[in-house]
């Protein structure tokens, strides 16, 4: 879940972003405010990079590119959409249209650290194995399907997914069902 949401406006040019520390930041924001926001939300950006790249170098390059694009667009963020919607759009647009790295996707890297909750769980090994299988299956999906999966796992509503991807809600529901079915089949095969 994103940690900063645009919740109210002073006027159209100066929206306010509320951080997870309940701190209100009025736009235009400083570079430091931007860095705080990126630092708070870097988890999701790294997860997107993990899904769309295959090597640590590509991952780092893509992450850097997303940060650059966010920074360049930051001054024109007017708060017409939620901050999270805006951020997902930029991150996914950057990742999906990075065609150079798509051709290089040869191996699966999903460098996440196991969650503490799972570590304590006695069935951790089994869950870890399942997660690995699912990760491999997700890597086999198309670029747009991966984006839908990311947003779904991030608990984004279909309405917000529509705002980010430009696919209407009904179509998204159909696609989501197909993706789930596809993942079920892919994980069975492995």
């Amino acid at each position: 879940m994103l940690k900063a949401e645009c919740v109210m406006f002073l006027d159209m040019r100066r929206p306010i972003i509320k951080t997870n520390n309940n701190q209100n930041l009025a736009i235009p924001l400083s570079q430091n405010d931007f860095l705080n926001l990126v630092e708070e939300n870097q988890g999701i950006m790294h997860k997107i990079c993990s899904l769309y790249t295959s090597t640590p170098e590509d991952h780092q390059d893509m992450y850097q590119e997303i940060v650059i694009q966010l920074w360049r667009s930051f001054s024109s963020f007017r708060g017409e959409s939620k901050f999270s919607t805006w951020m997902y759009r930029i991150a996914l647009n950057t990742a999906i249209s990075d065609l150079r790295r798509q051709g290089r996707r040869v191996k699966v890297v999903f460098p996440e650290k196991p969650p503490e909750q799972l570590m304590a769980d006695t069935s951790y090994a089994e869950k870890e194995e399942q997660w690995k299988q699912l990760s491999v299956a997700i890597q086999q999906l198309g670029e747009i399907e991966k984006a839908i999966v990311v947003l779904y796992l991030e608990d984004r509503s279909y309405e917000e997914m529509e705002e980010i991807l430009g696919i209407n809600t009904n179509n998204l529901r159909v696609k989501m069902n197909r993706i789930k079915e596809k993942l079920r089949k892919l994980t069975k095969e492995e």
């Binding site: 996440e112 991030e154 608990d155």
Partner: peptide, 30 residues
């Protein structure tokens, strides 16, 4: 295997070794 069962796992996951500090972010902006 159901995708829905992994929502919590996904949210709690921290990309290992991939944390970027403010200083590194500043370098990226240049």
């Amino acid at each position: 295997m159901e995708l829905d069962n992994f929502k919590d796992t996904w949210k709690e996951m921290v990309p290992g070794e991939m944390k970027t500090s403010k200083e590194e972010l500043l370098v990226m902006l240049q």
